[in-house]
């Protein structure tokens, strides 16, 4: 009876998965999605919200199309789109993703008035002088003295860390957390060696020995398979 199915609905423990065909036209897809959701009105009897994942296979959905589908699904009052998944992304998205996951190394001194910003992690071989600033979408590793400002996780990554061989910043920022140098100056931890700064459970930036990171931020290890 039914024509070839462009929308397949699957139920899981977590909610629903909508598999959208990636070869039909977008308009057909939308129309069919609307029909299928209406047909399966039994879904709507449940009063608490059901989470929906949308898989679009090899189809690229623009933001506008996603909004449209999201609205369509939400119009069935207890359905809530949790995520869109797709096998494809645009060249720009891929480039951005690559940049955000890259470590950029820079060998120079960031002097007063200078700002260095990278999308991913920053490895600075040199100092950040007072009045200078480094910013990174990810972590910041400074193999020299940090005496200016460092801002890690600028796009909202609270797990980002800042480390420096000499940690004497005027200010540290991670995501939207800010801490400044104590007015009496930083306590000397000569024996501690390299130090790091991270956001703790109380949502405050703390400075500690570098070695605490392996427990606190296991994701810093990107080596696959171990050694």
């Amino acid at each position: 009876m039914k024509k070839n199915q462009n929308v397949v609905i699957k139920g899981t423990k977590e909610g629903l998965i909508l598999h959208l065909c990636d070869t039909c036209s977008y308009d057909d897809l939308k129309k069919e999605l609307d029909e299928r959701l209406t047909e399966n009105s039994f879904l709507h009897n449940d009063s608490h919200p059901i989470l929906v994942k949308v898989h679009s296979g090899n189809r690229y959905l623009t933001e506008a199309q996603k909004d449209e589908l999201r609205d369509l699904i939400r119009s069935r009052k207890n359905l809530l789109v949790e995520a869109f998944e797709s096998n494809v992304m645009t060249r720009e998205e891929a480039a951005r993703l690559k940049a955000e996951n890259e470590i950029v190394s820079v060998a120079r001194i960031i002097r007063s008035g200078q700002v260095l910003e990278v999308p991913g992690d920053l490895l600075l071989v040199g100092d950040v002088n007072p009045g200078g600033k480094v910013m990174a979408g990810g972590n910041i590793f400074i193999m020299g003295a940090l005496k200016g400002i460092a801002h890690a996780g600028v796009n909202g990554d609270s797990a980002a860390i800042i480390s420096a061989s000499v940690m004497k910043p005027t200010q540290l920022r991670i995501n939207d957390c800010i801490t400044r140098a104590p007015d009496e100056g930083f306590p000397e931890h000569e024996k501690r060696g390299m130090e790091c700064a991270y956001i703790d459970e109380d949502n405050r930036i703390v400075i500690d020995r570098l070695q605490v990171l392996m427990h606190l931020r296991p994701n810093l290890t990107r080596l696959e398979g171990g050694f």
Binding site: R111, S112, G113, Q114, N129, P130, G131, G132
Partner: peptide
């Protein structure tokens, strides 16, 4: 010294 640092940055 701070201003010298700024100037060195510009000179570089």
């Amino acid at each position: 010294v701070r201003d010298a640092d700024r100037i060195i940055g510009l000179l570089e």
